[in-house]
Amino acid sequence: MVLKNLEKYQLVLASMSPRRQKLLSDLGLEFKVVDAGVEESYPEELGMTAIPEFLAELKANAIKEKLQENEILITADTIVWKDDKVIGKPENKEDAIRILNELSGSQHQVITGMCVQSTSKKYCFHAVTEVWFDKLSDDEIQFYVDSHKPFDKAGAYGIQEWIGYVGIEKIDGSFYNVMGLPIHKLYQYLKKF
């Protein structure tokens, strides 16, 4: 393990997202997975970066009482932000098509809020990535939704999937943040334990 300071800790990832689990695993870290089991609601007056941080902290607060002294809890929440509003996960196929039409040919932000905490330390932070989509045809959107079923993804897309290959013109910021875990930033915070 590269992060020798983590040898005395058990990492706990409170996320059922297979993408977050894969990214953390690819970092070479061992961890256990738990479900925070909270309803993801937030005060309406919160802004772009405050919303995902609030939700990450909400998840952390739901679990922190069970946290052992040798554990580090990792929670995260990712939102898509466009035109001063949150674009969430699609409710169904029609909603996914609507969302992708809204993102097509324009720019949006992907923000992940994170909390990393032990019984003695706590860090909450966020990462923002700007994403530019090319104009997508109806056939491209239909094909993607039918073949990848992006119903568990904020913004109705996964950058690492087909639509990312053909539809994303450029990004400014962390690619992995768009996948749901700003892994570089997380690594820097894990060094602090």
Rank of each mutant, 00 (worst) to 15 (best):
S174K: 06
K122C: 12
F31C: 07
E161H: 04
K32D: 07
K22F: 00
F133G: 00
Q10R: 13
H184F: 13
G113L: 10
D139S: 14
R19V: 12
G173L: 09
E45T: 13
I97C: 06
F151K: 00
W132C: 10
Q21W: 08
K85P: 04
Q142L: 13
P150Q: 07
K192T: 15
F31Q: 09
V86L: 08
G105I: 06
L27T: 03
V34S: 04
F54D: 03
I141T: 01
K153T: 07
I97R: 00
K89M: 10
V178N: 01
K185P: 03
Y42G: 03
R98D: 11
L58I: 10
L190H: 00
L13P: 01
E39K: 14
V110G: 05
K89Q: 07
K185S: 13
K121F: 15
D83P: 01
P18N: 10
D138V: 08
L181N: 03
F31L: 10
Y165E: 15
V33L: 08
G113R: 05
Q188D: 11
Q107L: 10
L3N: 08
V116P: 01
K185N: 11
D172T: 08
T75C: 10
L24E: 06
L23G: 05
W132F: 13
L190E: 10
K89I: 09
K185V: 13
K59A: 07
V80T: 09
K153G: 01
L13W: 00
V145A: 00
A60K: 08
I168W: 01
I51F: 04
D83E: 15
L13E: 06
Y189G: 04
K122T: 08
D152C: 12
D152Q: 09
H148W: 13
K192S: 14
V166G: 09
I97M: 05
L6E: 03
R19N: 10
C124N: 14
E57K: 14
G155F: 02
M114V: 12
E140L: 08
N61P: 02
V33Q: 07
Y187F: 15
I72V: 15
Y165Q: 14
V38L: 05
D146I: 08
T129R: 09
Y187H: 14
A96R: 01
M179K: 04
